[in-house]
Amino acid sequence: MDGAFILAHVPDYLSGAWVTLRFGLYGVACSLLLGLLCCLLRYFRVPVLRQIAGGYIELARNTPLLVQLFFLYAGLPRVGIKFSAEACAVIGLTFLGGAYMAEAFRSGIESVDKTQVEAGACIGLTMGQNIRYVIFPQALATAIPALFANVIFLIKETSVFSVLAMMDLMNVADTLRTSGGRTVEVLFMLMVTYLLILLPVSVLATLVERRLRYTGFGN
């Protein structure tokens, strides 16, 4: 392995990692919001919107991100709907992630005992207060492992952003590979960089989950 080559290209990987991480996190943040929204629409059985949310979740969960991106980036402009590559990246990731986050939130909410909801109602809380103080904290605690798994999943999925001609980690590596020919070093650094991005997320997930377990749930 060529150490000098690796050192020389650390900045390239850093800039690629920054793109991956930044757009990954934008996507994650938007996914959480969209997921929560969809979950609430379904929980409150809001007419029409609930069905739309349900349909969207099925559509997003059952198609590959790569195909979604091609449709967004190469298909839609032909009927006059144009987004920048960066916008496509965030929209695509949010479209995919929102559905997964919605499912994670849903399983969290479903895990909250019906009697807890009744107990909240019985001390005179409004539905909003009940959600905020009684249901949501418990639902979130249950949903946390799934939510973190989704975060890692979504950051990994950003690897297809290279089809949008974005200089993310994958594209940086691919460019170096085709121009320099040092395939082994290029791929080695690619693995290491992904690991450096995802390992902290995973450690954070473990810490949060441990803390939640410690705080103690279960009647």
Partner: peptide
């Protein structure tokens, strides 16, 4: 931890 695409590159090119 590894995106499947990275693994594909490793096997196909690496």
């Amino acid at each position: 931890f590894m995106p499947q695409l990275v693994l594909l590159y490793i096997v196909y090119f690496g």
